[in-house]
Design a protein around this nucleic acid. Structure first.
Lengths: 195, 195
DNA sequence: TGTACATCAGTGAACGCGCGTTCACTGATGTAC
DNA sequence: TGTACATCAGTGAACGCGCGTTCACTGATGTAC
C-alpha cells in the first residue's frame, strides 16, 4: 500500500490543487477532509500524512489559489507584448466576464477568499498567505497600470477594489439583471481610455 | 412558561436582530441555533416556535441586516439637508472608516454577506432578500449621487463595487498596512470633487 | 545484483463533538361561559 | 368580573448526522548488507 516518493509528492500536489479549487468555490469550512480526499481519489485518513491538520492546509492551499490569477495577467501580457493598454484591456475583460463570475474555482483568489478572510483570525497563517497574495496582485497591477504618476499605488488599490467588489457582487446576485450590469459598469469604469 | 403575545413578538424581533448581527459577523453557517438563542437569553428549542428551520430565518435576518446601512445614508442626509455633496461625503467617510471595517455586525449587509451569497444557491429566498437589499442600495446611491447624467445607474453600480471591494479587502487584510491604505485610497477615489 | 528488514503512504473503522431538529413536558396566557 | 379549560411559548433531553482527527493495520517501497 505504500506509495513511492514520487507518487507521494504527486498526491500532495493533487491535494493542494484540489483544495485550492474547492476552497475558492465553497470556502475552507465548506470543504471537508473526506470530500477533499475523495476529489483526488483517496480516503480521508491519508490526509494526515501530508498535513498536520486542516488548518495547516489552509495557507498552502491559499497560496496555490493565488497562482491562478497571476496567469490571467501574464496571459494578457503575453498576448500584448509592449502594449500596456492592450494588456490591461484583456486582463480587465477576462476578470470582469460572466465566465470568471461563474467559475470561482479557477478564478481570482483575492475575490473568492475575501469573505472568508474578512472573518478569519487576523494574523493566522491563512490570512498571511492571503495578504501576501493580495499585495502581490496590487504590485503587478501597479506595474502594468502605470508607473507614471506618484499615486500609482493608490490607483492600483482602487482598481483592485472595484474589480473585487464588482465580481463578488455579480456572483452574489447571479441570476438577476443587476449581476451582468455590475460587470459591464465596472469594466467601463476601469478600462483605459482610448486616446 | 407560556409567553404573552407581546413578549412572543418581542422575542421574535430579538431573534431577528441578533441573527442580523451575528450573520454579518460570522455568516449563516457560522451561527448555530443554540448560539443564536443564547444571544437572546433563551434555549434552542424555542427557536422552532418562530421559524420552521434555520433556512427560513435567513431571508428575514438578511432583510433586517440591510436596514442598518440605510441608516448610514439617511443619517448623512439628515445632517446635510439639501446638500448632496455633503451627504455623500459623510456617507463615504463613514462607510470607508476603520470603525465600519472593525464592526461588521452593525455595518453594511451588502459587504458582510457578499461572500456567503456568492456561494449560495441562486434563486433561494436568502439570495432574493440579498439582491433586493443591494438593488435598493444602488437606487438610494443613484438618487443622492446624481440624477444629472444618463449613466447615473452605471455610476452607482461602480461606486458600490468600489465601496464593497475596498471594505471587504480591508477587513480581509486587517492588521496589515494595506488594510488602511485600501480604505483611504477608495475614499479619495469616490469622494465628490470640490468645485 | 539479491536478500532481509525497516519504513511509512494510504486504508477504513472508530472516537468525541457540535450541529439542526424533534418532542414530551410545563405552566402562564388567552378564551369561553 | 370569575372560573374552568384549552392553547401554546419556551425548556431541555434526545435523535441522527457529518465533521476533524486518531490509530491499528497493510503491503509496497526504500535501505542495509
Amino acid at each position: 500500500m505504500r506509495s513511492s516518493r514520487q507518487d507521494t509528492e504527486k498526491h500532495r500536489e493533487a491535494i493542494i490543487d484540489a483544495a485550492a479549487k474547492l476552497v475558492r468555490e465553497r470556502g475552507l469550512d465548506g470543504v471537508s477532509v473526506p470530500e477533499l480526499m475523495a476529489e483526488v481519489g483517496m480516503t480521508h485518513g491519508g490526509f494526515y500524512r501530508h498535513f498536520d491538520s486542516k488548518e495547516a492546509l489552509a495557507p498552502v492551499a491559499f497560496a496555490r489559489a493565488f497562482s491562478t490569477v497571476d496567469n490571467f495577467l501574464q496571459a494578457a501580457a503575453n498576448n500584448h507584448p509592449d502594449d500596456q493598454d492592450g494588456t490591461l484591456r484583456e486582463f480587465f475583460q477576462t476578470y470582469l466576464s460572466p465566465k470568471h463570475r461563474d467559475d470561482p474555482g479557477t478564478g481570482c483568489a483575492s475575490t473568492a477568499l475575501a469573505g472568508d478572510m474578512a472573518r478569519a483570525t487576523p494574523g493566522a497563517a491563512a490570512q498571511k498567505a492571503y495578504v501576501c497574495g493580495v499585495e502581490q496582485m496590487v504590485r503587478e497591477l501597479q506595474a502594468v497600470q502605470g508607473s507614471d504618476s506618484a499615486d500609482s499605488h493608490q490607483q492600483a488599490l482602487v482598481t483592485l477594489s472595484t474589480m473585487v467588489g464588482a465580481l463578488l457582487l455579480s456572483r452574489a446576485t447571479r441570476g438577476n439583471a443587476i449581476s451582468d450590469d455590475l460587470l459591464s459598469a465596472a469594466l467601463q469604469a476601469i478600462l483605459p481610455k482610448p486616446d
